Computed example of a mutant assay.
Amino acid sequence: MSRLPAAGGAHLVVLRNVWVHKGGTPWTMALFSVYEPILYLLALGVGVGALVGEVPGIDVPYAAFVAPALLAVAMMNSALEETTNTVYGKLTFDRFYHSLLVTPMTVRGMVAGELLWAAARALVTGVGFLAVIAAFGLVRSPWAVMAVPAGLLTAFAFGAFGLAAAGYARGWHSFQYVQLVMLPMFLFATTFYPVTVYTEWVRVLVEALPLYHAIELSRGLALGEVGPGLLLNAAYLVVFGGVMLAVAQARWATLMAR
């Protein structure tokens, strides 16, 4: 049987997901994806921001400081939603991916296809949320338009992590452990305050978190603070995502062989 070229049929997985979701428009997808970060922006960025004023040492309104972090978080969550529970159901109970093995599609193509679809969903989320923060007047620099393309690195990194987690999950309850990791990271990875508030040793731990680098990349572009440091943030996400993608592909290959 001939094999599919390039990514082993990844584009077919994307097309299949587009067909399944054809009843929902991109704007509907964006609306549901940005609902939660908008609530955070209103409650903390605008509400608490009225008490905080400008962020010390950064000299921007608190809402403008929080908004790009929530943009990164929104794109992260969109990618994770697509690559954890939904993928796990198709991987174990529906055995959807097993049925694809009778076609020329490869395991590599399945993993890449789901990752591309997760990135596409994250892109819609990013565009939607950027439009929201622009409407609130929280865009501080023309570089902000690059925060969404840069956010695709966030989607890649956390989407790959989600695919690896789905491969190792032993049941639906396993994703509670994912949330056990994601929630503290969301709260402490400088989403709502700068890293300078931490003591030196805590700061080192925070700067090792992947979400910290996603937020720094998004915030740097949104605030116009563009420099070599953003390349390091991007490189971290590429390496983290690459490692997670390799883990996911290896694990899926094992599961497909059963």
Score class of each variant (00 low, 15 high):
Asn233Glu: 07
Val132Ser: 03
Thr254Cys: 10
Ala208Arg: 15
Thr125Ser: 15
Val73Arg: 12
Ala43Thr: 08
Gly23Val: 05
Leu255Pro: 07
Val139Thr: 11
Ala257Ile: 09
Ala253Tyr: 07
Leu152Ser: 04
Pro68Phe: 12
Pro184His: 06
Ala169Asp: 09
Ala30Ile: 01
Tyr35Thr: 14
Val181Asn: 02
Val60Ser: 02
Met105Ala: 15
Val197Ala: 14
Trp172Asn: 14
Val226Phe: 07
Phe136Glu: 13
Phe188Leu: 15
Met185Lys: 02
Phe240Trp: 05
Leu4Val: 09
Ala30Val: 03
Gly49Asp: 11
Thr28Leu: 13
Leu138Lys: 13
Asn233Gln: 14
Ser99Lys: 12
Glu114Met: 03
Gly242His: 00
Val247His: 04
Leu39Asp: 01
Ala189His: 05
Val226Cys: 05
Ala30Asn: 00
Ala253His: 05
Val34Asp: 01
Met29Asp: 03
Ala157Trp: 07
Val102Glu: 08
Asn85His: 13
Met182Val: 15
Ser33Met: 12
Leu211Trp: 12
Ala246Ile: 01
Ile133Gly: 00
Thr125Tyr: 00
Ala7Pro: 03
Val145Thr: 13
Val206Glu: 10
Pro228Tyr: 08
Pro68Ala: 07
Ser174Tyr: 15
Trp19Leu: 14
Val60Pro: 08
Val195His: 08
Ile38Phe: 12
Met1Arg: 13
Phe175Arg: 04
Thr83Leu: 08
Val226Met: 09
Gln176Met: 12
Val204Cys: 06
Gly151Arg: 06
Tyr198Pro: 09
Phe186Leu: 13
Ala248Asp: 12
Asn77His: 14
Pro56Asp: 00
Phe136Met: 15
Gln176Trp: 12
Val55Gln: 09
Val238His: 00
Pro56Gln: 00
Gly113Tyr: 12
Tyr62Lys: 07
Tyr35Gly: 10
Gly113Ala: 01
Ala74Leu: 10
Gly24Ser: 14
Val13Gly: 02
Leu115Val: 07
Val124Cys: 02
Leu255Trp: 11
Leu15Asp: 12
Gly229Tyr: 05
Gly229Ala: 07
Gly109Pro: 05
Tyr62Asp: 10
